[in-house]
């Protein structure tokens, strides 16, 4: 999946996460994580984001994660949506999600 513009999803409500993705100028993955639970779940969230990028076959992305203590399922939903938006994809393979 290739990012053609900035894709955003989520909010800054408690228990949600705001994620924005765009293509990385140096063609790599870079994650900027801000989280209110960083001390307890920072590494876990970063790994989750990397895993999802891998699954979605994204190899160039600057990912901004502003986390307000979201659960994994929420982070996954927001990140996938942001990626779809960033890649301009409008058809979803629901059975694969």
């Amino acid at each position: 999946m290739e990012l053609i513009h900035t894709g955003k999803a989520g909010t800054l409500e408690s228990s949600d996460v705001l994620i924005s993705v765009k293509t990385h100028p140096e063609n790599k993955i870079e994650i900027k994580l801000k989280s209110i639970v960083e001390k307890r779940f920072g590494r876990h969230i970063e790994k989750l984001v990397r895993d999802i990028l891998d699954e979605m076959q994204v190899s160039s992305a600057l990912v901004d994660v502003d986390d307000r203590s979201a659960l994994d399922c929420v982070i996954r939903a927001r990140l996938e949506t942001a990626l779809y938006r960033g890649a301009g994809v409008q058809t979803y393979h629901w059975e694969e999600l």
Binding site: K39, F41, R43, L71
Partner: peptide, 10 residues
Amino acid sequence: KVTGVPEPVQ
């Protein structure tokens, strides 16, 4: 099960 296991605070 919902939250995952947190790392201990340093």
